[in-house]
Design a binder for these strands. Structure first.
Length: 736
DNA sequence: CCTACTACGCTTTTT
DNA sequence: GCGTAGTAGG
């Protein structure tokens, strides 16, 4: 096997196959290369069976990338390597053995919004004043407990005497009871319950320990205690566990990530080898100098210093503007200029601290005709219309899922109101049956007018459930849409909003079609699971011709030739919250975030700041971020505000003028923006009669192309599998 | 039982 | 400033 592409440290990491190994991998130091080569080396040179290797990542995108790269390196069996995220690994384990701890294999996964709904409901029933005990705060407490593998009883014991613990513990207990009854698990449960299963069932533990002889964990600095426990259980004493991480890139402490996992690895896994990767292959020395000089202000980190032989490179731009308006204009103009000079949109990214900052840039990009795509923000699958339709599918898949049934019982409106629903709820609670079962017994409950409506709802679900086995998921969804009249109702409304919702539904349909096309054994549970565990950033495509816009959090693991790190204002980044907090750790986490942001840049980094900007409808005046001041002047170029960026007048605008101007900027809604960005995506380089190839179906001839709104539906006659219809945007057909 | 209005809440969020 | 969720009135 060819290891000559690796440097000495990388080689050492690849060759160290037995026993625990910690790889401290600085940003851009080629950790994915090390991991993939290590997998390949195990298979090709050490005779390890591919199915005995497990690689865990945090995002689907990282898992996908790793799979592809392993596939390129090994001759055979790459498919059998278990490469998956923490959560989907746990789902796979629980689908198979979850019955041993009381979950049937078609369990539903609750997202944050679902959980909140359940918590809200419980608070109502337990007469908890949600003004004092906010749902969010209760959820955070429960989530934190689960991250540390603390069940409701232990939670109560451990926090005895603290304010409101009895009440939170009460909600926690009831919450778990409900989830169990609904055959549902939340994100935290997926890990927690898997650990529970492995601890309680030696047979299952042995099974997986024998299976996963070599375990690799990516982004180890972001693991929480439950995930640590999971890895420890699977690895066993002196197991072959290799973790890769960078303590300087730990930015998810607020979500329970425990930096101690990486700092204390050598104590937890005795005899661990530690290898540091400090050579950076991504950025210029100037960019690394900036990153190093910021991060060195943190205490309690593993000592390391990134270096590169890429050369000094261009200087870093820093610009301070009067207003966020000017900042956005400058970035848009700069991108335009660079593209005119021959650079590509796909090489640009605008990174910011908070999602709300994207607006101003969207506005400018639209007016200058710059294609862009937003990542993060409101998740596609959390849109109301999408959630409604998914709730139908969930109800069909798992009738015990009370939450989904309640969500759709009167959506679209079918005359089943709050009084009826609460009667059903009470009946269900008193009999200890599920909400859906109580619906079937409408006669027992003594419902008057709504009786027939309820029974027609249940029989609708029954009929779909009966068909679910025989028809495709796409057809099932079509039947839900036609049977409920969901889209028809929106069509009647005939507003822009309704149109946008219909478009989202169409997109959902293509996602179902895409799933069925690219999965070997598509199932309804499988689809719903994929949907629950997918993140917006997973669809990031580095070659697509648009400017990527996202939070710095989302950008972790990505790289761009040109990075615009915007909003470098004290109070925004670092955030006001962490400046005022007494906990210095929070500022350190923010500094790590800045380090992550800077190190995303390969060639050119631009940082911008504005003296005043509109935040939550209020004008705020901020100083330049303290992080900028930590960077030595030598890496910066000339720092000035170009005339073009502030329009014709260079005099300072008065406060009133600023307010008016800012208002105008925020008034405009960039509504068409997304559509225009998607359009750029779906241009076909083939036509009817052309020969094309598909990842799964092989090669074939294009029979027909029909334009279905934003995407094209392509009919292809494949040589091996016959005629198939698919959406061009998802099928990724290539002309041959 | 449904619609219209008001009030609140808003860092980051791989899953 | 904006979107959603909860409540009051029809």
């Amino acid at each position: 096997m060819d290891l000559s592409v690796l440097n000495d440290m990388q080689k050492r990491a690849v060759l160290h196959t037995e026993g625990p190994l910690l790889i401290i991998a600085g940003a851009g130091s080629g950790k994915t290369r090390v991991l993939t080569h290590r997998v390949a080396y195990l298979i090709e040179e050490c005779g390890v069976k591919p199915w005995n290797i497990m690689a865990i990542t945090f995002t689907n995108k990282a898992a996908q990338e790793m799979k592809e790269r392993i596939d390129h390196l090994v001759s055979d069996g790459a498919d059998s390597v278990w490469v998956a995220t923490f959560h989907s690994s746990c789902v796979r384990i629980l689908r198979r053995f979850g019955d041993r701890i009381g979950y049937s294999s078609n369990f539903t996964i609750y997202d944050t919004e679902d959980s909140k709904q359940v918590i809200k409901d419980i608070c109502r029933l337990q007469n908890i004043d949600t003004k004092i005990f906010k749902e969010k705060m209760i959820m955070a407490a429960i989530s934190k407990a689960k991250d540390t593998l603390t069940g409701p009883e232990e939670y109560l014991e451990e926090n005895m005497g603290k304010f409101g613990v009895d009440r939170i513990a009460g909600v926690y207990t009831e919450y778990q009871k409900r989830l169990k009854k609904s055959n549902a698990l939340d994100f935290d449960d997926l890990i927690f319950k898997t650990v529970e299963l492995l601890e309680k069932d030696p047979e299952v533990l042995k099974y997986y320990r024998d299976l996963f002889r070599y375990i690799m964990v990516d982004e180890y600095q972001d693991t929480n205690m439950a995930q640590f426990k999971l890895v420890s259980l699977l690895a066993g004493e002196g197991g072959n566990v290799c973790v890769v991480g960078d303590d300087d890139q730990s930015i998810y402490k607020f979500r329970g990530a425990n930096i101690e996992n990486i700092l204390g690895f050598e104590e937890n896994f005795k005899g661990a080898e530690v290898i540091k990767l400090e050579q950076n292959y991504r950025s210029t020395q100037n960019i690394l100098d900036a990153a190093n000089s910021v991060i060195k202000n943190n205490s309690g980190r593993k000592d390391k210093r990134l270096w590169t032989d890429n050369g000094t490179g261009e200087t870093i731009d820093f610009r301070r503007f009067d207003q966020s308006f000017d900042e956005a204009y400058f970035v848009a103009k700069d991108i335009s200029d660079r593209v005119s000079a021959g650079e590509s949109y796909s090489d640009m990214a605008v990174l910011y601290r908070t999602n709300a900052q994207s607006r101003g840039f969207e506005e400018r990009f639209v007016s200058l005709n710059i294609p862009y795509r937003l990542f993060g923000g409101v998740n596609f699958y959390s849109r109301k219309e999408v959630k409604d339709l998914l709730a139908y599918l969930k109800t069909i898949d798992n009738g015990d899922d009370d939450l989904s049934v309640k969500r759709i019982i009167n959506v679209p409106k079918r005359g089943i109101g709050a009084t009826t629903i609460s009667k059903i709820e009470m009946h269900a609670a008193s009999r200890g049956i599920t909400f859906f079962e109580a619906l079937e017994k409408a006669d027992e409950v003594g419902i008057g007018r709504a009786r027939d409506k309820i029974l027609s709802f249940t029989s609708f679900i029954y009929s779909l459930r009966a068909q679910a086995q025989d028809i495709s998921i796409k057809d099932l969804l079509d039947k839900v849409i036609s049977g409920t009249g969901y889209v028809a109702e929106l069509e009647e409304e005939d507003s822009d909003e309704a149109k946008a919702r219909i478009e989202n539904i169409e997109e959902l349909i293509s996602k179902v079609a895409d799933y069925e096309m690219n999965t070997s054994e598509p199932t309804l549970s499988g689809f719903l699971e994929e949907v629950s565990l997918v993140a917006d950033i997973d669809s990031f495509d580095e070659n697509a011709d648009y400017v990527a816009m996202m939070t710095i959090h989302s950008a972790k693991g990505l790289e761009f030739k040109n990075v615009y790190l915007v909003g470098m204002d004290d109070g925004l980044f670092p955030s006001y919250m962490c400046i005022t907090a007494d906990d210095p750790d929070e500022l350190e986490e923010e500094r790590r975030l800045c380090y992550v942001g800077i190190t995303r840049a390969k060639k050119h980094l631009t940082m911008t700041s504005a003296e005043c900007r509109m935040i939550r409808g209020e004008l705020q005046y901020n100083a330049v971020s303290r992080f900028i001041k930590e960077i030595p002047k030598t890496v910066f170029g000339e720092q000035r505000i170009p005339e073009s960026a502030i329009g014709k007048t260079e005099r300072r605008a008065s406060d009133t003028e600023k307010k008016i101007k800012a208002k105008e900027v925020f008034k405009a809604k960039p509504f068409e923006a997304k559509q225009f960005a998607v359009k750029g995506d779906v241009t076909l380089d083939y036509g009817v009669g052309d020969r094309v190839s598909h990842i799964k179906f092989g090669t074939g001839t294009v029979l027909e192309i029909t334009s279905g709104g934003r995407d094209y539906e392509v009919k292809v006659d494949f040589d091996d599998v016959g005629v198939k219809k698919m959406f061009a945007g998802f099928a990724k057909l290539k002309k041959v």
